[in-house]
Design a binder for these strands. Sequence first.
DNA 1: CTATATGATACTATATCAGTATCATTTTGT
DNA 2: ACAAAATGATACTGATATAGTATCATATAG
Lengths: 134, 134
Amino acid sequence: MRLINRETDYAVRALAHLGDKAGERLSVSDLVRAVGVSRPFLRKILQKLEQAGILESRKGRGGGFKLARPPERIMLGEVRTVFQGPLKTENCLFGVRLCYDYKTCRLRRKMRDIEGRLARELDAITIQSLQKDL
Amino acid sequence: MRLINRETDYAVRALAHLGDKAGERLSVSDLVRAVGVSRPFLRKILQKLEQAGILESRKGRGGGFKLARPPERIMLGEVRTVFQGPLKTENCLFGVRLCYDYKTCRLRRKMRDIEGRLARELDAITIQSLQKDL
DNA sequence: CTATATGATACTATATCAGTATCATTTTGT
DNA sequence: ACAAAATGATACTGATATAGTATCATATAG
């Protein structure tokens, strides 16, 4: 199981590159070069980041993407959630139906604690901390 | 993304039930009752646990499964690995090919640390601690 | 007004997850 | 000996997630 999948990974690379460029707007072509992934796939990733409010875009000639916030305020946990959804025990893996006995709920409780700590760790990592120019 | 999937979850329930019974051998029928899952699916799960050395089985009339070790020596992390594989950044998500620049490797390093802590937390939870009769 | 950029959306292939089914083999009771 | 009762091995199916591609619409600079 992977905590970080490819979309998230590529997203982080693109964001770190944008961070290096200190708020500049870059085209997909620039980012494709920096990240090393196919253009259509990166486009999809960038569009999701825009929808999530992490990037701002501009259409048309000279258009492209820039960070919507300074890189020290963009967290790995947030980026990861965009592409992989939240870390969730959702209270119960099975809806309410099966979570009837308390040894199971013990597991749930322990997992919730672990997931909470994990989420905090992921939210402690900023894009800035992953930049080249730190 | 789920840290614990259904197979792992059912496995833990079955193991905790076996732990409650203090080393007794139980049939699949008994475990189906305790866990609340279909018989063929539970059978598959129990077989994997046997292959992993967590359960011992006995065929034939009066056969069934028992814990291969005391429940305080069976860890959630190990059970999880049987069904979901190891937590892995495997050094690099992409093999060596793409992990060429060091901002990416920073991410790798941070993820390795996080995954290490997570694995230790999962290995700190014993089946015994999930039993009813604790 | 057209070339260039992103936006929205739908499609495809592969892998993983969740679960079922079947036949072989071992063991026990009669 | 033999039939019943148990697990072993294995293969199959359907649903969902992952990884990626393709296409047409829309906005903007020059």
